[in-house]
Design a protein around this nucleic acid. Structure first.
Lengths: 113, 113
DNA sequence: CTAAAGTACTATGTATGGCCAAGTACTAAT
DNA sequence: ATTAGTACTTGGCCATACATAGTACTTTAG
């Protein structure tokens, strides 16, 4: 039980939510997402992102098309499916509730201390 | 990959953070925490809370003392150790970063859509 | 005085997802 | 042809939330 480990646990599920959001904005491929996540200081490594995209695709939330690149191998450009949009809405509600519940508890701490 | 499952994943680690916060406010025992979490709409069941408390205690973040009860068996009243306070500070920083990173991504979505 | 109900805590097993690490495949430059 | 770089894949590890069943003690009911 070290801090690092709990930090990892905290990210579970949240990453999925962020990635769906990014894809909802328009067609992107993996490196685009990595750049975006890094810019927001949410560090993600390849070995985390790619399996996640595959899971989401297999679940029918995403679809992709191959697009040739001028500098390297072809890329998978992802878009949300109808199911994906619905799922994202559900996650948004959950996330907002979670944040509000947490701040309810932590803010109360501030007031009491 | 259903919504419910992702909701569970989202809570991972956050629960630990909330519980440390509650204990930081003063001596409490398990049922107090359950009431508090339920009031904040963060539903937790016994089977989740008790093992978590045991983990935190074994990690040296919590300590407890037995207190006799007028209505039932004695209770474990928990308090934070010095390590626990440090850990909570670390988690607070992580959580705030995570929330800010996430809103950075989701707010951007709103602006673009 | 025994039996039932209630409260507080314990123990075990399962499933999921983030991460690490190594690996594949294709393109472009030297 | 060989090297470097980009894009994606795969298998295994570990920690945690949860379900479920069980232990121990106290109070109340018959």
């Amino acid at each position: 039980m070290n801090l690092e480990n709990t930090q990892v646990q905290m990210r579970k599920g949240i990453l999925e939510y962020c990635i769906l959001h990014i894809i909802a904005r328009g067609e992107v491929y993996a490196s685009d997402m990595l750049d975006e996540l890094t810019a927001a200081k949410m560090i993600v490594v390849e070995g985390t992102l790619y399996p996640l995209l595959t899971r989401l695709k297999n679940a029918g939330l995403l679809e992709y098309k191959w697009v040739e690149s001028k500098s390297g191998p072809p890329r998978k450009y992802y878009t949300l499916t109808g199911d994906g949009t619905g799922f994202l809405n559900g996650l948004t509600a959950t996330w907002n509730e979670l944040v509000s519940s947490t701040s309810l508890i932590t803010e109360k701490s501030k007031a009491t201390i």
